[in-house]
Design a protein around this nucleic acid. Structure first.
Lengths: 208, 208
DNA sequence: TGCATTTATGAACAGCGTTCAATATATTTG
DNA sequence: CAAATATATTGAACGCTGTTCATAAATGCA
């Protein structure tokens, strides 16, 4: 009987309606101003409907998080896989990370800053799997760099991957929270990318 | 006439009452749960009183920010000034930064993450002055390191200071937002400090 | 058609930041 | 000292928020 399936489709349809509306409001008005009532009224349903598809607001945000994270992983690691040189590949990933972070501050906040979603996240190991996959890809890239002689062989993979990640994350989040205004520099973005270049030049040894 | 002064003292007294209560609630219950009404009831005043001393909640948080920032600056740069070797001094500052960030996550969030305070901050240049002072001290330290041969002479002071700052900031904020749980490592804190050591060992050249 | 099940509603609850007319307190003046 | 003025404080009210739940509408099945 196709009724159950149609029902399921309808259910998913409403869920998608909610998610799309939520994403739209979230992107245009930010986290603080994304309210259940706004989402509901945007899709012309009552507020209660949202709680038939999501446990609470956190879980809704988590669903948004998952989608954003997936897209990002794709952009960061898959899109650069045709770059043969591992260091250039790593640099490209770093630059993409910066670019993505400053172009999509709302998404970025959702993915890497908000703690309010972490309670929900603690249960869903899908989140951690995605994250581990990303770190795994990063480590692979670093390993290739070590193999090619760009990094010292004695450094721990976990540690260098944390350094790379937290370096780009730090730059992005300082920029997005406007803390870089402390620097009397006009072109903040250029400043960020140049600094990242310097980072790579310091951290790697020229091929010897 | 001393009446005006006494009045002023009383005013400041109430303002301090508010700030202390706000800080207490802020530290124990976090930003989200620090409400005007809670602060007011803690000091046994009506909610309205707060708006006689602060324009809005942002300005109250900004006042907390200023105090926290001052304390932190002291801890970070003044307390290590007796370390003669500039690189050791810089390392000590970095470690203090990490320690402070993970020991005082609420303060840290207030100082470096929250954007909701930035609207208020945009006007108050006191904030930017404090920040610029801190960056200035950091740059001085780096300059000393360059002078002592620990860093390459050709790198821009602004860029290397951004790298250092964003490196420690990135590590702290990933830890505080529990993103480091992606790593299957038990002792996260040790991991952070070791990574920071690695960072310094990569970024500096051994004295030659 | 009638019954059972699913789906959706929207009023209600407790809380939020903020404002403001009304009130209580304190000071100055007659 | 009493009246008038100035200041300090109140707390109800406004329009929001996330969330729940009895009620109502719509649908599927016999």
């Amino acid at each position: 009987m196709g009724i159950a399936e149609r029902k399921e489709r309808e259910r998913e349809g409403v869920k998608d309606l909610i998610l799309n509306a939520a994403r739209e409001i979230f992107l245009s008005e930010g986290y603080e101003n994304t309210s259940i009532r706004k989402i509901a009224s945007k899709i012309e349903y009552s507020p209660g409907i949202i709680y038939l598809h999501f446990k609470d607001k956190n879980e809704l945000l988590l669903a948004l998080h998952d989608k954003a994270f997936e897209c990002k992983m794709k952009a960061l690691f898959i899109d650069v896989q045709d770059i043969a040189d591992p260091l250039e590949r790593l640099k490209a990933t770093g630059r993409s990370y910066l670019q993505y972070g400053i172009d999509n501050p709302q998404d970025y906040e959702l993915m890497f800053i908000l703690t309010c979603t972490m309670e929900a996240l603690a249960i869903k190991e899908e989140f951690w799997n995605d994250g581990a996959t990303a770190i795994g890809l990063l480590k692979e890239n670093i390993k290739a760099c070590i193999g090619a002689g760009y990094f010292r062989k004695d450094i721990d993979l976990n540690e260098i991957s944390l350094l790379l990640w937290s370096q780009v994350h730090g730059i992005v989040s300082l920029y997005n929270t406007e803390r870089l205004n402390i620097y009397a520099i006009e072109d903040k973005k250029e400043f960020m990318f140049q600094s990242l270049d310097v980072f790579f030049s310091l951290v790697t040894r020229g091929l010897s």
